[in-house]
């Protein structure tokens, strides 16, 4: 139980770390969306694990499934916006996506 928990916690933290690191560093808009996906995957695993630890497996898993659905919608909208940005400006670099500032 303890080792299992440690492994899961480590995995979750890794995914969160990779996701956040990606959001801080990547410049391609598609990669930003992918980083976001990695981040959410960490949270989904955490939810399932939390269900297991507390003995509420059903609750944890149904939560996870719902999050997957919602997350997919967000990803779709994000990608759609990215495609539109590429069409309008010809670039996917987030550095160019900073006309609104100050």
């Amino acid at each position: 139980m303890t080792t299992e928990f440690t492994i899961i916690a480590g995995g979750v933290l890794c995914l969160l770390g990779v996701g956040l690191y990606g959001l801080l560093t990547v410049r391609n808009l598609f990669q930003v969306i992918i980083a976001l996906q990695i981040l959410v995957k960490g949270a989904i695993i955490a939810l399932v694990a939390a269900g297991k630890i507390s003995g509420q497996i059903n609750l944890g898993q149904s939560l996870a499934v719902t999050v997957i659905v919602a997350d997919t919608i967000v990803a779709v909208i994000g990608l759609a916006l990215a495609v539109q940005v590429k069409r309008l400006t010809g670039s996917l670099d987030v550095k160019n996506l900073a006309t609104l500032r100050r």
Binding site: V94, K95, A98, R102
Partner: peptide, 17 residues
């Protein structure tokens, strides 16, 4: 303070962290 409003996405995420 205006300098902090860079408009850069990466920077904005750093704010959250």
């Amino acid at each position: 303070l205006q300098v902090t409003q860079t408009g850069q996405l990466n920077w904005n995420v750093l704010g959250i962290m």
